[in-house]
Simulated assay, not measured.
Amino acid sequence: MAIFTIVAGARPNFMKIAPIIHALQKRILEGADLSYRLVHTGQHYDKKMSGDFFDQLNIPEPHANLGGGGGTQAEQTAAIMVAFERELVENRPNLVIVVGDVTSTLACSIAAKKLNIDVAHVEGGIRSGDLSMPEEINRMVTDSITDHFFTTSEIANANLRNLGVSDERIHFVGNTMIDTLLAQMPNFKKPEGEIFDQLIPQGYFVMTMHRPANVDQEHQLKAMIDAILEGSQGLPIIFPVHPRTAKNLQSLGISAPNLLMCEPLSYLEFNYLVQHAKGVITDSGGITEETSVMNVPCVTLRDNTERAETIQLGTNELVGTDPAKLKPYLEKIMANTWKQYQGIPLWDGNTATRIVSILEKIYCA
């Protein structure tokens, strides 16, 4: 029997692992000689948020929660490594599957390889080239010790080949986050609350902002919000606010009648808003993938991106962190002249099925 340990640590990981678990469950029911353990590292753990995700995405309760949250980057990495090593010694699998680029991805990959256990990296090979981002370091270190790469794009494939990774270890399968998006679209639901009742389709913006380059410097944050308010021409801007950002906004006294701040939303509620938005303003990576597939205009407030396919074939544009450069992009959205989604290869909802099929060939042969 082939045993796989699947690791999830932070909110974006849940969307990426859900379809893999569903595809594994399906094959197990069909008689495949497979088994898995789901390990939640506890890197980000909020009972309500995690509960929402497990319920909404139909993910079973984890077999183990390592409780590795809190502390500095180094403290968190160390706590997860120590706890995950213990998990692997007690429940040794044939393969550890890590996803994305969070601290848990790095920590669990290192712990597994030190015990001579194979590692598969789902979303391997993506790069921003920006070493000031912790996620980029996580990607680089994880990919340097990974055995099998499940990639989302030809760009990621090229990045790995440039590192000397052989073709038989690169498996171009698509994007499991898009599997979740396409499966859950019929279940999207409008959030409850007064601010959401006033919204009309294509009559508002959705904004997310959390990166230190945008939110930790008072002058930069105020200038960016002012530019967004000006460019939105009075349309409501729904802003689910990260606690750190909320604190900074409050201290700056930033407010406007159309800047509608709210608590972080569940997956189904947030994507309902994105699907019906005029446009999305973000400094996140994953949202650029979802907006592309939903054909919603997206501007990214970063100087680089690890998801270049969303610019080449999707609806994303890289604006940068200079507020002065934002205006023409928002004008284009307001004028309904934004580019359309061209279709990104293999982002078709069947990625997890392809992953499990490949794993069976490798570990059940």
Rank of each mutant, 00 (worst) to 15 (best):
residue 107 A to P: 01
residue 101 D to Y: 05
residue 179 D to E: 07
residue 167 D to M: 14
residue 83 A to K: 09
residue 167 D to R: 13
residue 175 N to A: 00
residue 95 L to M: 01
residue 140 M to D: 11
residue 96 V to Q: 07
residue 90 E to W: 11
residue 147 D to N: 14
residue 88 L to E: 09
residue 171 H to Q: 01
residue 89 V to D: 12
residue 117 I to S: 05
residue 82 V to T: 14
residue 152 T to L: 10
residue 110 I to H: 02
residue 106 L to E: 03
residue 92 R to A: 03
residue 172 F to H: 14
residue 91 N to P: 06
residue 90 E to P: 11
residue 139 R to V: 06
residue 136 E to M: 00
residue 173 V to E: 06
residue 149 F to R: 07
residue 86 R to C: 12
residue 100 G to P: 00
residue 176 T to Q: 07
residue 92 R to S: 02
residue 151 T to L: 08
residue 144 S to G: 04
residue 78 A to E: 10
residue 177 M to E: 11
residue 122 V to Q: 00
residue 138 N to R: 07
residue 101 D to C: 03
residue 179 D to Y: 01
residue 154 E to N: 11
residue 99 V to T: 14
residue 83 A to H: 09
residue 144 S to E: 03
residue 118 D to M: 07
residue 117 I to T: 07
residue 153 S to C: 00
residue 135 E to Q: 08
residue 175 N to Q: 01
residue 139 R to A: 02
residue 102 V to L: 05
residue 142 T to I: 09
residue 163 L to M: 14
residue 164 G to S: 01
residue 144 S to R: 10
residue 140 M to K: 10
residue 108 C to S: 10
residue 142 T to R: 03
residue 101 D to L: 00
residue 97 I to A: 08
residue 121 H to E: 02
residue 159 N to H: 15
residue 181 L to I: 09
residue 95 L to A: 01
residue 113 K to I: 12
residue 145 I to H: 02
residue 178 I to N: 13
residue 152 T to I: 15
